[in-house]
Structure formats: C-alpha cells, structure tokens
Amino acid sequence: MDTKTDAMVRVRESHRYGDFAVHENIEFEVRENEFVCVCGPSGCGKSTLLDILAGLLRPTEGQALIQGRPIDPARQNISFVFQEPSTLPWLNVRDNIAVGLRVKKRPEREVRQIVDDIIEVVGLRGFERHYPHQISGGMKQRVAIARAFATDADLVLMDEPFVSLDQPTRERMQHEILDIWQRRRRTIIFVTHNLEEAVFLGDRVIILSSKPARIRADTRVALQRPRDTLSAEFTALRAQCATLLNELSRQAGHVAPEPARAV
C-alpha cells in the first residue's frame, strides 16, 4: 500500500480478543468522498472493524487514523448507520435526525435548517412529527441515514443497513443512498455480506477472509453509475468476487449460505 498523504482514513491494525486473533494486518486507505464496501464471510470481524473505525474500540496493535489523527468520536465527526433499527422511540423523526447535531452542540437555528434540508433529501417531508412506531421499517432506516448525513461527517460507517428490509425496499434504498451520497459528498465505509450490493454501490470492494480477518482482495469497481446489475461487466465482476468469497467461506469451514444467496 502506498503512503499517499491525502488519505481520509488510514487503517493499519491487528486485533485480538485474548488468544483469539480477529484481525491480522488489516491495512487500507480510503480517499475523501470515496465509497468503499467491505465484504466477508459472516463472523469475520466486519463489525469489529467498524467499531474500531468509529473509535469505540481500540485495536490491540496499530491504529486507525482520520486525516492523520487517531480516531476520537468526541473530536471527529463520525456517523454510524446500524444494522438494527436505531431510531429512538421517544423522539419524533425530526428530533431523531437531529441527535448528532445536538450532541455536537450546534446552534438550534442551524439544527433546524440542516434537518429541514436533509428531510427533503431523504423524502421524509410530512413525517417530521411522526414517532418511529408510526412509520415503516424502510422509513426508520431513512431516518438513520438522514441522521448520519446531517452532521458534516468526516466518515460515514454503515453496518449492513439494509439487511432487515425486504428486497424491493432494499433496492430502492440502495439507489437512494447513492443519490444522497452524490448530493452530499461523504466518505463512506459500507459493510455488507451481499456482494451484489457491494459491487452495485462501491467505488471499491474490499474482501476480508475470516478467522483471523485479512484483506483478501481490494477491487476497484470501474463501472459507470448508475450501474446495470444485468450488464456483462457487472456480472463478471460480481462472479469474480463471489468465487473468492465462496472459497474463503469453504476454507473457514462452512458452506457460505449468505454469499451464495447474494449471487
């Protein structure tokens, strides 16, 4: 890996729980405004990687840097879109979106302005006063995404954000996230075990092996957006990644049900 200085995120770490090695020499860089997808067999330590990138977990060796500085959630702006619904049930849509802005103590006038703008972008206009139990699962995830994009996040982390959504909603959300990302340029690290999703969304797809996780492949997706999932180039690239992932899963001792379904 080269040592370019314009990297937004630089990771170089190994992590272990006691004797159990989770990550081994995980090393990569992410440029500003790059959309990077991370794939790997289930249980390979993808969520651990996100916790390290969020500054919630310190790796046992090495470190992760944002703009050259060690990650500290209090000092840097990091957003996280979780796999499970993360809307706070006692806050309405508007206040849920404003959570990050309020923690960062932005002036209330600014908060109102930013939330108004982002509500428009994610298509939740008219639902500002609704509580989470009054809206659908897809809308809740849109609230979480709006929350993540509301702060001037240096880094947006996404942990399989669409996994609990049904297929049509999921596809719509994939288009929406690209749309939002193109309007509000951000650096995104997006974890998924769905290869099609990874190849569809990412500028790059990083494939991790499991136990311990190593970077097995780091593939640039040089396809024009919007990408046609049925085009020859797309299917070829997806198949190439799938072969790799299947191989890894077999090595890890289980017949990868998830990647297989994704292909």
């Binding site: 500290d72 959630p73 923690v103």
Partner: peptide, 16 residues
C-alpha cells in the same frame, strides 16, 4: 445498547 451506541458514536459523554 443500540440507543446508547447512537450517542456514543457522536462522542456523547456519560452524563449526556
């Protein structure tokens, strides 16, 4: 735990 984490990733302290 997820609700706690929502705030932690923005750097919220214990009191918050």
């Amino acid at each position: 735990p997820i609700h706690r984490k929502v705030y932690q990733v923005y750097g919220a302290g214990k009191l918050q």
